[in-house]
């Protein structure tokens, strides 16, 4: 019995580590420069990536730009921001569509540079990238959002 409990504990720990984001990393939500939104509450950001809110204030449809499954931004999105798993996330997104509502638009890219570039080209897109990636040339032309009034690096910034 003890072996089984230890095995279960090890499996749980491994699973939690697998989906946990790097505790030292910080992340930024970025949008197109023409996007009028400059500041988001954390709960509104969560609502966007949950698919609960699928429109910007100007009624344009939100395009979510997400990183691939193994990346730090994706792990942060699943484990910290949404507190979910890829499987449950997929289920909740399909459920929105199944209820007859407008589907969530998602683009998945395999680097922060590609995510920034995509946001630069799609005015209604929003992405979560590592703050370290903001120095990349590809991330130069896009807008970093304040989260609850704070920018990356400021005291009390919550996307980390």
């Amino acid at each position: 019995m003890g072996h089984i409990l230890r095995l279960i504990a090890a499996l749980l720990a491994a699973a939690m580590l697998h989906y946990a984001a790097d505790p030292a990393a910080a992340f930024a939500a970025v949008v197109h420069p023409s996007n009028a939104t400059r500041d988001l509450h954390l709960r509104d950001l969560t609502s966007l990536f949950e698919g609960a809110n699928r429109q910007w204030p100007n009624r344009s449809g939100v395009v979510l730009v997400e990183r691939d499954a193994g990346s730090a931004p994706f792990r942060y999105l699943m484990g910290r921001l949404l507190n979910t798993t890829p499987g449950e996330y997929k289920r909740s997104l399909q459920n929105i569509e199944y209820r007859g509502e407008t589907p969530v638009s998602i683009k998945i890219l395999n680097s922060d540079a590609a995510a920034c570039q995509y946001v630069f080209n799609v005015p209604s897109a929003i992405a979560i990238v590592e703050t370290a990636s903001l120095a990349l040339p590809a991330c130069g032309g896009i807008q970093v959002l304040r989260i609850d009034g704070k920018l990356p690096g400021e005291e009390g910034y919550r996307l980390k």
Partner: peptide, 10 residues
């Protein structure tokens, strides 16, 4: 730019 990810879980 870099190619889109091959694995697209969602």
């Amino acid at each position: 730019a870099e190619q889109p990810a091959q694995q697209q879980p969602t």
